[in-house]
């Protein structure tokens, strides 16, 4: 195979583009700028850590099923871990959102980083809601019957039926986690590509 043919391959072009945008030292950096030494910067990674626990405990619940998470002590414990990791996930994500909002973190060509964060947040709300209606207990029945009229009034009910447990469970364990994890991965990669947004007072220095 000639060099020109190799250069034309999509694998070669993709590898070169990825390596150019995100070299290994940028993907996994040894140090961050000094302004990152603040507690306000820890909430992004706290959200990621909580998401990892959410996915791991969700996988355990999927393996053993509703009978296990409702009746056995270990199942109830894992179920609680799943709930509380979601609580920490949203708590940290909201503080992260406030921090980035007041930093105007979309500055310096970071609009896509901001927008992927926004869409991940909205997707996570959907994932949490479908989780509430997938518990398979009286609580989930109550929530779904209360929610149906609101959802139906928007017209979404035609293809998103909150009273359909099977559909809600599939949205909760397949579609929404897939989108949330994919968007989170893109969000983190964009942070690596563009770097962490500098504080306002550092902008003139950074652009000099």
């Amino acid at each position: 195979m000639s060099t020109t043919e190799i250069d034309r391959q999509w694998t070669t072009r993709l590898r070169r583009r990825a390596a150019g945008k995100l070299p290994p030292e940028k993907l996994l950096p040894d140090k961050q700028p000094s302004y990152v030494s603040s507690w306000i910067y820890v909430f992004g990674v706290t959200t990621l850590a909580a998401l990892t626990v959410v996915i791991a405990t969700g996988c355990l619940l999927a393996i053993r099923g509703p009978q296990w998470w409702h009746s056995s002590s270990v199942g109830l414990f894992v179920n609680s871990l799943h709930l509380w990791s979601v609580e920490i996930f949203f708590f940290a994500m909201v503080v992260h959102l406030w921090g980035k909002y007041f930093m105007a973190a979309w500055r310096g060509g970071r609009a896509m980083t901001w927008m992927t964060g926004v869409v991940t947040f909205l997707t996570s709300i959907g994932a949490a809601f479908t989780g509430y209606v997938s518990q398979s207990n009286f609580d989930s029945q109550w929530i779904s019957t209360q929610a149906k009229d609101g959802i139906n009034s928007t017209g979404v009910g035609a293809f998103f039926n909150v009273l359909n447990l099977g559909q809600m469970l599939m949205w909760h364990i397949v579609l929404l986690p897939l989108v949330a994890v994919l968007l989170t991965a893109i969000h983190v990669l964009l942070v690596r590509v563009k770097g962490v947004v500098p504080p306002f007072e550092d902008v003139p220095k950074a652009t000099k």
Partner: peptide
């Protein structure tokens, strides 16, 4: 969440001074 947000802005971060001296 509000208390955590304010605390995160005000509380000193461990090693901040060292990092400022060696950015």
């Amino acid at each position: 969440m509000v208390i955590t947000f304010i605390a995160a802005l005000l509380l000193p971060f461990p090693g901040r001074q060292r990092r400022k001296e060696n950015p």
